[in-house]
Write a protein that binds this DNA or RNA. Structure first.
Length: 548
DNA sequence: CTAGGGTTAG
């Protein structure tokens, strides 16, 4: 009764729409109320309704409401698109996109949508939409390339860059260059990275500090600390990102002394370190086993009056890594238990990694149990646990972990290595026979194995995690992806150039020993990047000094 | 009312 007599006001409707968020039926009722209220229906009033409908997933009704709107603004299109993304309806969104095609808001919304798909892990949808976009402008191309790199799809970014270069309608700019240098760093593609940069120079693109920082990072991620240092010294300006890039890069390349020296120089020059800088410093300590120094720097952060330098989860993970790697497993465990932040999978993962390095079964098991709860979908942790069991010869436990993984559908990431040659990346899996030079590669491998065996190389069968006979273990080991990659490098590269091998996972003991021997008998430098760090092999010695 | 792209770390 009362409701009928009380005139419905905009404020009331707006309130109503804001508070009722989760019941589709209620939302439809309110919509009816809006339509019959006689109030002039403004888009702003319908915005909440649209948002709520997309939240509850009633996209059909959301579309109906949207179609009733008068000249919807960009953000309203966006709301609907976001709804489609969230409810995983790529085809509807493309349909909507086609409708939008005649309007001038086209590019902006579609670009944002493509990025959103990528960030949701919907690679196929993102590609589908991106390719359906007609007359893409520079920003659209750049956005796609950038988001590819950000989501770890650098190979796709490279592909896209080539397509963009082939398209006469767009020219690239410094944004493109930065993303591409970043992509080349990820891929370990030194030649292509240089090519991109040289082309930018030729075409008169303004190579500002961001471009140079990206190039610096590219050199370091490709293991070329020499070129990075030359560039760093030549740079007209250096900001905190330049310094941090150097510190992080040198730490990753195993030169902790240089990393810490850079940190001191930076402070002497009055550049304030930020939290990323400290991540580099801590990781430098970690890779060199400098426990006391690491604690010192962590203490500096914790005591700093600068709020932005308060240790974050990543710093705690670094400390766990530092303690654990140095064999202080119990201390690392206590450190986690006492930390003021909620430990995440990355922190527990660091401890599990350390348990694996030191063959610590009991603690490893405990940590793995925690990780099954917090990150059941990350196969790497289960693999670590199973490796710990395997190293101790507890094969029935290995089987248990494996069958559990099978039951949960947890996937292992397959190991692969790559080597760049002649501006082209060559990929190898374990036991790979797909490369056109397969025959020559395996012959080279045999030849080298024979030579280094006579010099005392013994396969480290301890790093085979299957319960098989020794002979089988050796043959399984000898075809690891990094060995194939090294053999490929021996055949193809110039003798004076190092062989740069990029591996997606941690390398094994045997491949590490193998690379040392090979660097000695062939007099070639081998630079190997694994998931954690670089190993620079020269004349039978590795830069890591056996601590990794 | 605003609203698409870039560097270090994860």
């Amino acid at each position: 009764m009362l409701a009928k007599q009380t005139p419905l006001t905009k404020q009331m409707l707006s309130k109503l729409l804001q508070t009722s968020s989760s019941k589709p039926k209620q939302l439809k009722k309110i919509h009816a109320l809006v339509l019959t209220s006689g109030l002039s229906v403004k888009n702003s009033l319908l915005t909440h309704l649209l948002e709520n409908l997309t939240l509850v997933g009633d996209m059909c009704y959301a579309r109906k409401v949207f179609d009733e709107m008068h000249k919807p603004r960009v953000f309203l299109w966006n709301t609907l698109f976001k709804g489609y993304v969230k409810n995983n309806l790529p085809f509807e969104s493309v349909q909507l996109y086609k409708k939008m095609r005649d309007l001038d808001t086209l590019g902006i919304v579609a670009t944002e949508l493509v990025m959103m798909y990528m960030k949701f892990g919907e690679l196929k949808s993102a590609q589908f939409l991106f390719e359906s976009m007609q007359g893409k402008d520079l920003v659209a191309w750049n956005a796609f390339i950038a988001v590819c790199v950000q989501t770890g799809n650098s190979a796709l970014a490279l592909e896209c860059y080539n397509k963009m270069c082939a398209d006469d309608a767009v020219l690239f700019d410094s944004f493109t260059v930065v993303s591409m240098l970043s992509a080349c760093g990820q891929l370990g593609s030194l030649e292509i990275g240089k090519e991109v940069y040289d082309r930018a120079r030729r075409e008169g693109i303004d190579c500002n500090i961001i471009v140079e920082n990206a190039r610096l990072d590219m050199f370091l991620k490709c293991g070329s600390t020499e070129e990075a240092m030359v560039l760093f010294e030549e740079m007209e300006q250096r900001n905190v990102v330049s310094w941090s890039t150097m510190i992080v890069g040198y730490a990753m390349n195993g030169d902790s002394d240089e990393a810490l020296a850079l940190f001191n120089m930076m402070q002497n020059q009055g550049i304030r370190p930020n939290y990323v800088t400290f991540l580099g410093v801590l990781s430098a300590c970690s890779h060199a086993g400098l426990v006391d120094e690491g604690k010192k720097y962590f203490g500096i952060m914790a005591r700093s009056s600068d709020k932005s330098l308060e240790p974050r989860k990543e710093h705690y993970a670094c400390m766990v890594d530092l303690l654990g790697r140095s064999g202080l497993l119990e201390e690392a465990y206590e450190f986690i238990k006492n930390m003021p932040l909620e430990p995440d999978a990355g922190i527990w993962g660091a401890l599990l990694g350390a348990c694996a390095v030191h063959g610590e079964i009991k603690l490893g098991q405990k940590v793995a149990d925690v990780l099954v709860e917090t990150a059941p979908d990350i196969g790497a942790y289960q693999v670590l646990l199973s490796n710990i069991y395997a190293a101790a010869g507890k094969w029935h436990c290995v089987d248990k972990v494996r069958s559990k993984m099978r039951k949960l559908g947890t996937k292992k990431v397959a190991a692969y290595s790559s080597v760049e040659f002649d501006g082209q990346l060559h990929y190898f899996n374990r036991g790979d026979k797909s490369h056109p030079q397969t025959k020559a590669i395996y012959e080279k491998l045999e030849e080298v194995l024979k030579k280094i065996r006579s010099m005392g190389y013994v396969p480290q069968t301890g790093s085979v995690f299957h319960d098989v006979e020794t002979e089988e273990k050796e043959s399984s080991l000898s075809h690891h992806s990094e060995k194939l990659a090294i053999a490929f490098g021996l055949i193809n590269g110039r003798v004076e150039d190092p062989i740069r091998v990029m591996k997606n996972l941690r390398t094994c003991d045997d491949c590490h020993v193998f690379a040392k021997f090979v660097s000695r008998v062939t007099s070639r430098d081998i630079i190997m990047r694994d998931k954690n760090r670089f190993h620079h092999f020269r004349n039978g010695v590795c830069s890591c000094r056996e601590f990794w």
